[in-house]
Amino acid sequence: MITYSVEHAAELLQHDQVLAYPTEAVWGLGCDPMNQQAFQKILALKQRPIEKGVILLASDVEQVEALLSPLDQARQQEIIASWHNRQAHERGLTWLLPNQTAIPEWITGQHPRVAVRVTNHPLCQQLCRAFGSFIVSTSANPAGLDPACNLEQAQAYFADQLDYLDGELGQSPLPSRIIDAVTGQIIRD
């Protein structure tokens, strides 16, 4: 089913559904990160091993404050600034943060940290706010294929196996860069 309503899409997530939606650079697949059954559906759709982990997408820093708290103040400010000072056409930044909260292992995979991005994409912000928390964000594609860049491509990959929130794709030319917040190492450039 296709919806144009962010509120309806958030209700779908609250009812254990998987949703395809446009992000900053590509279409993503999302679900409630605390719902293992919905998350397992994403892994099956993508044919992705659980060990790889996924990104959590948030609308604002308040949704991820608990994940930032183990870091020193200077690093916290650097991360927050990287999210707040980004223009719509610039590539997003995903940070690997210490997982000292209740983020399940199925989200982090084999990694000791959790990947988090505060989005500046208006539709994604609205979706996270309507859902009331961060959501899973992984590219909408089966393993080995290019990420979907529009609704039609997402539907070609997944047909009626999930729901779709239609909207405009962001202006970022590439998927987010991933940086380890503890070491500063660039994981995906």
Rank of each mutant, 00 (worst) to 15 (best):
M1D: 10
M1H: 14
I2K: 13
I2R: 11
T3M: 04
Y4I: 05
A9T: 10
L12E: 01
Q14D: 07
Q14A: 13
Q17P: 01
Q17N: 11
L19C: 07
P22R: 05
T23S: 13
T23E: 02
A25T: 00
V26H: 02
W27T: 00
G30M: 09
G30I: 08
C31P: 04
Q37T: 13
F39I: 02
I42F: 15
L43K: 05
A44G: 03
L45V: 05
Q47W: 10
Q47T: 08
R48S: 10
I50Y: 12
I50D: 10
E51R: 12
K52L: 12
K52Q: 08
V54L: 03
L56H: 02
A58H: 06
S59C: 13
D60K: 13
V61M: 07
Q63E: 10
L68S: 08
L71F: 15
L71N: 09
Q73G: 10
R75L: 12
Q76Y: 11
E78V: 10
A81P: 10
A81I: 06
W83L: 00
W83I: 00
N85H: 15
R86W: 06
R86V: 08
Q87H: 12
E90D: 14
R91F: 04
R91C: 07
R91D: 00
R91S: 06
G92V: 01
L93P: 00
T94N: 02
T94M: 04
L96K: 03
L97W: 12
P98G: 12
T101N: 15
A102H: 11
I103R: 03
P104C: 09
W106K: 03
T108R: 10
P112F: 15
P112H: 11
V114S: 07
A115I: 08
A115Q: 09
R117T: 05
V118Q: 08
T119E: 13
L123T: 11
C124Y: 03
Q126E: 13
Q126K: 15
C128Y: 01
F131R: 00
F131S: 06
F131N: 00
F131I: 07
G132A: 06
I135L: 12
V136T: 12
S137M: 08
S139C: 04
P142Y: 12
L145Q: 14
D146H: 13
D146V: 04
C149R: 15
A154V: 10
A154P: 02
A156C: 15
A156P: 02
A159M: 11
A159W: 07
D166M: 06
G167M: 04
P175N: 07
S176T: 09
S176E: 02
R177N: 03
I178K: 04
I179A: 04
V182C: 11
G184T: 07
Q185L: 15
I186G: 01
I187R: 05
